[in-house]
Structure formats: structure tokens, C-alpha cells
């Protein structure tokens, strides 16, 4: 009884609507495809982190007598590669470098590309023209070609591959950021903020960022799968990770000679690249749908 009267007497509380991201997570949690994709991605990340505990063998341990065993060989569940190394262990360890190379360039490019694009989009006019035409020079090259050319110029190695992938993605993200910002800048609430005397940095932080980061973020997540494939491609060409490190693209390259002897084993790294990139893509699609407020 006292509880009820206290409730009635209490000052009416301000009703607060759940925020935008709350709604996004709620909608995302109702999308089975995106959830499954997210689970697989999380599982892959867990496998990469826990690789030393999960891998049955040392991924670098070679054996002359156990070369190219087929899938299902007792003790070697996924067979062995052309140097007799256990495929399961190498795929597990390979997840580490492959995920690093696939994922790391995207957030770096996201930060740099968004900054460039938002400044260009908000400033407009001659600043926009200068920035965006410079970006277009990079954008004119096909991304694979640009990544290969940059990696080739910088020399092989993990860091150089990451740098070149980042540079490849910056123009793409900058273009998306610029076009989204240009749209938002024309809206009346930006004019209203200008009319209330706010300066450009304040308007960008309060009014522009919250409305453009979502779409740019969705685009960036879709780039992770591209980054995975490009990174594998660089390793395949000998421009990324150096042997004997395990990386899926590199494994694909070294097993290429065995494709007539043991095609299923040779295809395994490719399957991993495919599954990982498609999961990132499906999750990104789900995110895009969940962020569409109009529904």
C-alpha cells in the first residue's frame, strides 16, 4: 500500500525513448542470418586467439613421409600439406594473420577516410573539389592493382601489406563519407544549428557525425571481406606474409601445385577465406537493414 501511494505521489518521471543504437541492436537480434554470420565471425576470432590451445600440432612442423595426406587421415583430420604440415593446425593458426590482415586496415581507413570525406563534404566548394579530385586519382586504379602496386613498391611483409591495403580503402571510404555528408549538410537542422551561432567543428561533432557515421560504418564493414580477399591475394603473390608463416592466402599459393594430387586439401584455405568474407558481408547487410530507421 505504501509503495503504491509513493508511486502516485512521486514526481512524474521524464519518459525517455530508447536511443537509436538500442533500436539497431533490437532489430539486428531479430535477423537470423546476420546473427549466424556474427556467431561464425566471433567463433573465428576466438579460434584465432586460442590457436595455441586448439591446434593439435605445431603448424610449422614438416614431415617428409606424411606429405599430402587426404582429408580424414587418422590423427590428421584435414590432411597435410605439401611439406607434411598438419592442415588443421595451419588453418587454425592461419586465422590469426588472415583476420589481422583482413580486419586491421578497415578501421584505420575508416578513421582517415571518414575524416577526409566529412571535411570535404561539409566544407564544399573549392576545398571539396581539391580533396575529392585527389581522392579520385587513387580511386581510378582498380583496388587489386593499387594494392599490388603499393605492396610491390613497399616490399613484402605484413606491415607493408597492411599499409597498402589501408591506402586502397581510404579513397573508397572518403567518397562514401563525402556523399553522405553532402546530403546531411543540406538539411535544415544543419542550417538551424548555423543560425544558432554554432561554429563548424561543433556542428560537425553534434549534428553531422551522428548522422553520417552509421552509413559509413556499414560500408566499412562490407570492406572487411574485400580486405580479406585482397590480403590473401597479396600473400598469394608473395607480397604479404612470408613463408613459413601460416596465412590462408599464402597456403592457397603453396598448395596450388598439389591441386591435381589432392584437390580437397588444396581448396581448404580458399573455403576458409570464402566463409569468413561471406560472414562479414552477411553481417554488414544485416547491419544496414537494422540501421534503416524508416522501417
Amino acid at each position: 500500500m505504501t509503495a503504491i501511494t509513493a508511486d502516485i505521489v512521486a514526481v512524474p518521471r521524464i519518459i525517455r525513448s530508447p536511443g537509436f543504437w538500442h533500436g539497431v541492436i533490437r532489430r539486428l537480434s531479430r535477423d537470423p542470418v546476420a546473427l549466424v554470420a556474427l556467431c561464425i565471425v566471433i567463433a573465428l576470432i576466438a579460434i584465432a586467439i586460442l590457436a595455441p590451445y586448439l591446434a593439435p600440432y605445431d603448424p610449422a612442423k614438416t614431415s617428409v613421409i606424411r606429405r599430402l595426406k587426404p582429408i580424414g587421415t587418422p590423427g590428421y583430420l584435414l590432411g597435410t600439406d605439401e611439406l607434411g604440415r598438419d592442415m588443421l593446425s595451419r588453418l587454425i593458426y592461419g586465422a590469426r594473420l588472415s583476420l589481422v590482415m583482413g580486419v586491421i586496415p578497415v578501421p584505420i581507413a575508416f578513421i582517415i577516410g571518414s575524416t577526409i570525406g566529412i571535411i570535404a563534404g561539409y566544407a564544399g566548394g573549392i576545398v571539396n573539389t581539391l580533396i575529392m579530385r585527389t581522392v579520385d586519382v587513387f580511386y581510378a586504379f582498380p583496388s587489386v592493382l593499387l594494392a599490388v602496386a603499393l605492396s610491390g613498391a613497399l616490399g613484402s611483409g605484413l606491415t607493408n601489406a597492411l599499409v597498402s591495403l589501408t591506402v586502397v580503402f581510404i579513397p573508397q571510404i572518403a567518397r562514401v563519407a563525402e556523399s553522405v555528408t553532402t546530403q546531411v549538410r543540406r538539411l535544415d537542422y544543419v542550417d538551424a544549428a548555423r543560425a544558432s551561432g554554432a561554429n563548424a567543428p561543433t556542428i560537425i561533432v553534434v549534428h553531422v557525425l551522428s548522422n553520417v557515421l552509421g552509413p559509413i560504418f556499414v560500408f566499412a564493414t562490407s570492406l572487411i571481406s574485400v580486405s580479406m580477399i585482397l590480403a590473401s591475394g597479396l600473400s598469394f603473390l608473395g607480397l604479404g606474409v612470408r613463408p613459413p608463416d601460416a596465412e590462408w592466402g599464402l597456403m592457397l599459393n603453396s598448395l596450388r601445385t598439389a591441386i591435381y594430387v589432392n584437390p580437397y586439401v588444396a581448396a581448404l584455405p580458399g573455403v576458409m577465406i570464402f566463409v569468413t568474407s561471406i560472414c562479414f558481408n552477411l553481417f554488414s547487410d544485416g547491419l544496414r537493414t537494422a540501421m534503416d530507421v524508416k522501417s
Binding site: R16, L187, Y189, D191, A193, S196, A198, V206, H207, S210
Partner: peptide, 20 residues
């Protein structure tokens, strides 16, 4: 279009004074 969709009503109304 003249209200920022990501801000609550009180945030939108109080933005101007806070700028000043």
C-alpha cells in the same frame, strides 16, 4: 528535416543556448 533525428527534443532545444 529541421530537427536532428539523433538528438532528443530537449537536446535539440537546448543546443543553441549551450553553444552560447
Amino acid at each position: 528535416a529541421s530537427l536532428n533525428p539523433r538528438l532528443t527534443i530537449e537536446e535539440s532545444v537546448s543546443f543553441g543556448p549551450r553553444v552560447h
